[in-house]
Amino acid sequence: MKMFVVTLLMLSAVVSGCNQAPKNGAAPSQTADANRQVQVKQTAPQKKEIQDPRAVAHRLEQIAVSVPNVESANCVVFGNTAVVGINVPPAMDRAKVGTIKLSVAEALKKDPYGVDALVTADMDLNQRLWNIRQQAMNGRPINGFAEEMAAIIGRIVPQMPRDVNPLQSHPPAQR
Rank of each mutant, 00 (worst) to 15 (best):
D124L: 08
Q62S: 15
V70L: 06
N74R: 15
R94V: 15
S103T: 02
G114H: 06
K101R: 07
R133A: 07
T81D: 13
V97H: 02
L125F: 02
D116Q: 05
P53C: 11
D93G: 03
K96G: 01
S103Q: 11
V65I: 09
D116L: 13
G79S: 01
S66H: 03
S66P: 13
K101V: 11
Q51V: 13
D122Y: 15
V56N: 15
V119F: 07
D116C: 11
D93H: 03
D124Q: 04
A107I: 08
D93R: 00
K48A: 05
I63V: 07
E106F: 13
A44M: 12
N74W: 05
P90V: 00
K101G: 01
T81E: 10
N69E: 11
G85I: 01
L102A: 12
E71K: 03
I63E: 08
P45V: 15
A91D: 01
F78S: 11
Y113R: 12
Q51E: 10
D111F: 06
L118F: 13
N131E: 06
R59P: 10
G114L: 10
W130C: 04
P45I: 00
Q62I: 11
A95N: 01
V56K: 05
C75Y: 14
Q135S: 09
S103G: 09
P90K: 01
G85W: 01
S72K: 03
D116E: 12
L125R: 11
N87K: 05
V70P: 03
K96W: 00
V119K: 00
S72E: 09
D111M: 02
P90N: 10
M123N: 08
Y113E: 11
V77F: 09
A107T: 00
P112H: 12
K96P: 02
T99R: 01
V104N: 04
L129G: 11
L125H: 05
N80Y: 00
R133E: 09
N74I: 05
T81P: 09
M123K: 09
V84T: 09
P112Y: 02
E61Q: 14
A73F: 07
T120Y: 14
V76M: 07
L60G: 11
Q134P: 09
A91S: 12
L129D: 07
V88P: 00
E106G: 12
V115Q: 13
L118T: 06
V119C: 07
N126L: 06
N74M: 04
K109D: 14
V84K: 02
M92L: 02
V97S: 04
A64S: 11
K96V: 00
V84A: 10
Q51K: 04
L129R: 08
T120W: 07
A121F: 14
N74K: 10
I132C: 01
L102I: 05
A117V: 09
R128Y: 00
L102Q: 07
V88R: 04
Q46V: 02
G114Q: 13
A57V: 08
Y113N: 08
N131M: 05
C75V: 15
K96F: 03
L129F: 12
D52H: 13
H58A: 15
